[in-house]
Every structure is written in C-alpha cells, then in structure tokens.
Simulated assay, not measured.
Amino acid sequence: MRIVFMGTPDFAVPTLSEIVGRGHEVVAVYTRAPAPAGRRGLDLTPSPVHKVAERFGLPVFTPKSLRGEAAAEAFRAHDADVAVVVAYGLILPQAILDGPRLGCLNLHGSLLPRWRGAAPIQRAIMAGDKETGVAVMRMEAGLDTGPVGLVERIPISPDMTAGELHDRMMVLGADLMARALAALERGGLAFTPQPEQGVAYAAKIEKAETRIDWSLTAQAVHDRIRGLSPFPGAWFPLGADEARVKVLRSTLADGSGAPGVVLDDRLTIACGSGAVRLVELQKAGKQPAAADAFLRGNTVPAGTVLV
C-alpha cells in the first residue's frame, strides 16, 4: 500500500522500519522539525524518525502545523491509501484525517479507553496497573477516541519501569501495526467502538509530580519511582546542598517508621505505610549507580530523614 508515516521519537522507529521491511511504499514521512541542540542551541538535531527515514531514502516533511488548506492539499497530493501515526506530536485536523483513502491508523500505548492522552505508559505504572497493551486505532477528531482494530496485551511486572515497558511496547507495536496493515489491505480489519466505561486520561507529567512524597504508601512511592524512570525521574534532595538525586529503581521492603526515615544501611526508606528500598540512583551530573556504589560516595546513615 501507499503509506504516509507520521512519527517523531524512538518509540515510532521500529514501526517505520517494519512497514518498510514489509514492502509497503512509504510515499512520505512527516515528523517534528529538527530541535535546537548544543550549549547555545545553534545546532539542529533531527528526530529519530527523521534520521531513519533519510537512511531509507524516504522523503521527509517537517511542517510546524497541519492546519490550513495548503497543508491539506500537500497531504492529499501524496495519494496515500492510509496514514500511520505513531507519537507524531502534532494535532491532525479533520482535513488531514480525511485525506488517505482508508483513513489514519494510530498506534497507542494503552488498552483503550484507559489512558487516552500524552503519557499512557507512565500513567499505567504510576497507577499500579497490572496490565496494559498497545492498540491500533482508526483516528477521529477526539483525543484517542477512535474505534480499535487490533490489541496486544502486556503484563506489567511488579518492578517494571516505564523505560522497560516503553521498549517492549515499541517492538510489539511495530508487529501489531504491520498485522493491522496486512488485514486492512485484505479488507479484513474490523474496528470496534471504544466502550464508554473505563475512560481514563493520561495527562502530561508535571514537574511537581516528580519529587518523591514519602508520606504516600510504599506501593504508591514505588509505583511513582518506576513510572517516572528513566525520564523525567522521581527524585529527592540530599545533604546540606540539597543535591537532587533521582531514583531509577526501587523495590518494596520490610520495615516501618516516620515517612522519609532511612531504616538501615541499604537505603530502605520508611513511607506513610511500609517501606521501599532504593536500588539504583543518579545524583545530578553523575552516572546511574547501584545503591551500594552510591553509598560509597554519599553518606546516608540509618536515622537520616529524607524530605
């Protein structure tokens, strides 16, 4: 089929590669414009999708907006059978959604209608969900409201981080989208409307959410840590200079005490109820380190109160 691919981050790269590998004709790749980089912001860095598309020799387009008749005409000129959208980052107006003959398919990282929106991977883990998935949805004007064609379910293990779930999703999602396109080409891809019950919105992660609140239950603290790992990272201040320390991995632990109190020499921290043990940490400007290595360079004795 003739396909317009629309995506930007690493998450979208396996899907583009899979589509090309399956022999589809990718007539255009839309991605976000190169972003300023370097100390002075003078260098422009193309997106991961942009880089891969150029290696494949595909035509790349980086419009700042898709609104307006000129953008719609340029899009229709590709004469695409379908558009595949994976974490593109721009809103698609109705004129764009109506452009391809078979519509626009979106790969979304949740079991819709749960976790519509910007941060479904992080929100699923932060909420303590035991299962999530990837879905291929036919796009419409609403936010992730379109009918669903295919779903792949993924268990969330107790200590899984958002980074680990992201990497698993992007591989499974690429295969799922390839299967959806094959079924669509045969005329055999059926879509089911999303149920009205169970809708949840995955709002963008705010900075205020990233500081660890030790007064929460141990489970809630643990879920917050792994849901924000590796980026942007849950953190706490340490020492007289209140240096920011990210916690990249944790696990539930035995113990209790006042919230934020260090209970032993293994970085077991009391929470509002229960305790967590910090497994991997990263001090500002430093590389990630296992807890024992971190403690060799930082003094955090039992009885210390983290705030």
Rank of each mutant, 00 (worst) to 15 (best):
T217N: 05
M137N: 01
I212Q: 00
R32S: 11
V134A: 12
A33C: 10
A83F: 13
A72F: 12
R226S: 03
H78G: 00
I156M: 07
I125T: 07
I96W: 09
T299P: 06
L216D: 06
L181K: 08
D265I: 09
W214M: 08
V29A: 00
R32L: 15
Y201Q: 09
L216P: 03
G163T: 00
A127F: 15
Y201K: 05
A208G: 14
S215C: 03
K204N: 05
L181A: 09
L295K: 04
M126D: 07
G285A: 04
L105K: 02
V136Q: 07
L181N: 10
P46C: 03
L281W: 01
E185F: 08
T210P: 00
P230I: 01
L295I: 11
R244L: 10
E242P: 08
R76G: 08
M1K: 03
K283H: 09
A70E: 09
D213G: 01
V221P: 09
R138N: 04
R101P: 05
G21N: 12
D213C: 04
H50D: 14
D10C: 00
G146P: 00
F191D: 14
P48L: 03
R138L: 11
E18D: 04
G239N: 03
G227Y: 01
A270T: 11
V49W: 04
D10V: 07
P195G: 02
A253M: 04
M170E: 09
P48I: 13
G23T: 02
R67I: 05
P34A: 03
R296K: 08
P36K: 10
A124L: 15
A162V: 01
N106A: 07
L90G: 08
S215A: 06
E280Q: 09
A77P: 02
R76A: 11
R226L: 11
E242H: 13
G188K: 14
H108R: 04
K64C: 02
R116E: 00
L189V: 03
E242R: 15
T217W: 07
L281I: 03
K246S: 04
Q122P: 13
V134R: 11
K51Q: 14
A275N: 10
P155F: 06
H24N: 14
G239D: 04
H166V: 01
G227F: 02
I125N: 00
R116A: 01
D265K: 09
D264Y: 10
D10N: 07
K51T: 15
H222E: 12
D98M: 12
A240H: 11
R55C: 10
H108S: 05
T304F: 06
P48W: 07
A289H: 03
A87R: 06
D223C: 07
L189E: 01
V261T: 13
V29E: 01
G99W: 00
L105H: 01
